[in-house]
Design a protein around this nucleic acid. Structure first.
Lengths: 225, 225
DNA sequence: CCCGGGCTCATACCCCGGTATGAGTCACCC
DNA sequence: GGGTGACTCATACCGGGGTATGAGCCCGGG
C-alpha cells in the first residue's frame, strides 16, 4: 500500500528535490506536482493523493487557502487528503491558520530529509507532526489560554451554591428565565431569586454580564455547545 | 555544554534503560534518578537538571503534580527545568494537564531510542516536541475550539455593517444601551435600532445571546479585556 | 439625477428582567 | 431545639430592553 503524495510549491527546484527524495522510497509515490495553490487544488481533486505537501507562500493562491479548499471540500467532493504544510521561514500566524484549517502538520524546509520522509508516513497514518518550534508555540498558546484550569466541581464561582451555578450556566447558554424555570422545573420567580443572588455575589448588573463572566471564568467554553 | 538530565520513573528497569541510552551520548549527562514524584521534585531542586524525563503514572506523587511543582516553583527557587513527559499508555487527559502545567513535550515510551535522544536535545534547546498521536489530538482540539476563524476584517458577522459590529462588541463587553450610546456619542434609540437589526440578522433574541454569539464567533476572546 | 444602503433619531408600546420584601420548607449542625 | 443556609415561591413595582413605524441625512453607484 503505497502512499500517494502531491507536491505543491512554486519553486521548481524544491519540487524536484522533494520529488526525488520521496520517490526513492519504496512505499511512497509522487502522483503529481503543482506550482501554485489553484493548480494544487485541481490536482488534489483529480489525483486524490493521500498526502499533500503544501508550501505556504505561493503566487496565485497561497497554501493556506489551497489547504482550506482541499480540507473543506464542496458538497459532492468526498476525497479529503492530509495536508502537510511547509515553509522556509520561521513561522508565525500561518501556523495557526493552517492548523485551524485542519492541516496535519507544519514543517520547516530546512528539516533533515529523513524527517520529511518520516513526516509523510506519520501524516498518512492519520497522525500529526509539527516542527519543534511550532510545537513550542502551540503548547505555549494552549497553556496560556487555558491556564491550569482545574476541572474541580467548584471553579472560582465566588461562593455560588450548586443551584446558582446551574442557573448561571443556563443563562450562559442563552435561555430566558421562563425557559430556565421550565428546564429546572421551577417557578419563574424562583429563577429570578437565584439570578438576583448570583448578580449580587458576583457584583454584576444583568444577564449579559453574567454570560461574559461565564465565558471568562470558564464556566462555559467557546465551541462546546 | 552537556545537557543535564534527571530521570523520574517508578520502574527500575526503565530508569536503567534510559540512563544507559542517554549516558552513552557525549552531549548528555544523567545527573540523577528518582523513583517517584516527590523524590523527583527534590532531586530536581538539588541537581538543577536542564531536562527532566518524567513518567506520568507513579506512586506517592504522580508525574503531573511533580511537573507542576517543578515548573511553577515557590518563591525563592529560581531554577526551572524543561519537563518531558513519558507514558506507556496511549494518552488521554494527562496530555492536556501536562501541557497546561508547562511541559515541553509528551512522548510514548515505545518511541524509537533515537527519538528519545533527539527529543531531549530539542527540549533542552527550548523547543518542544510531541508524539504524533498527541500532536494530532492537540491540533484537533485547537481547530475545534477556533474553527477556521478567518481573521479578515469581516469575521462571519452575517452581513453586519461596521457600526452594527461595533455595537455588538460593546454589548459583548457588558455595556448597557445608555453606556453604548455615550461611548459612541449617539442617542440611546439609535443604539436600540442597531441592536434590533443585529438581532434579526443573527436570528437571536436578546443581548445575552448576542454575548454568547460574540464569544462563539470570536468577536471577543476570553481573557483579553 | 435618483436610488438604495448605512446611519441617525423620534414617538410609542409592551414585556421581560431585575429588585424589594416576606415567607415557608428542609437539611444539617451545634 | 434553635439557628443557619440553601432552596422555594408569592406579590408587587419599575425601568431597561426590544419592537414597530416612520422619517431625515449623506454618500456612492448606476
Amino acid at each position: 500500500m503505497t502512499i500517494r503524495v502531491l507536491i505543491v510549491d512554486d519553486q521548481a527546484m524544491v519540487r524536484a528535490g522533494f520529488a526525488a527524495l520521496l520517490a526513492a522510497q519504496s512505499d511512497i509515490d509522487v502522483v503529481g506536482q503543482a506550482e501554485d495553490g489553484r493548480q494544487g487544488v485541481e490536482l488534489g481533486r483529480s489525483t486524490h493523493p493521500d498526502v499533500v505537501l503544501m508550501d505556504v507562500r505561493m503566487p496565485e493562491m497561497d497554501g493556506l487557502e489551497a489547504a482550506r479548499q482541499l480540507l473543506d471540500p464542496p458538497p459532492g467532493v468526498t476525497h479529503r487528503p492530509k495536508v502537510l504544510m511547509l515553509t522556509t521561514f520561521d513561522v508565525d500566524d500561518y501556523v495557526y491558520e493552517a492548523l485551524r484549517a485542519g492541516a496535519s502538520g507544519f514543517l520547516l524546509k530546512d528539516a533533515p530529509p529523513a524527517d520529511l520522509i518520516a513526516a509523510v508516513r506519520i501524516v498518512a497514518a492519520g497522525e500529526a507532526l509539527l516542527a519543534p518550534s511550532v510545537t513550542r508555540r502551540l503548547i505555549a498558546d494552549f497553556a496560556k489560554q487555558r491556564p491550569a484550569q482545574r476541572r474541580d466541581p467548584a471553579l472560582k464561582l465566588n461562593g455560588l451554591t450548586p443551584r446558582e451555578a446551574e442557573v448561571l450556566e443556563l443563562i450562559a447558554r442563552g435561555l430566558s428565565n421562563q425557559e430556565i424555570a421550565a428546564h429546572l422545573v421551577l417557578a419563574e420567580q424562583t429563577v429570578k431569586t437565584h439570578i438576583g443572588r448570583v448578580l449580587s455575589k458576583l457584583d454584576l448588573r444583568d444577564r449579559a454580564q453574567l454570560v461574559i463572566f461565564a465565558y471568562e471564568a470558564g464556566v462555559v467554553v467557546p465551541g462546546d455547545q
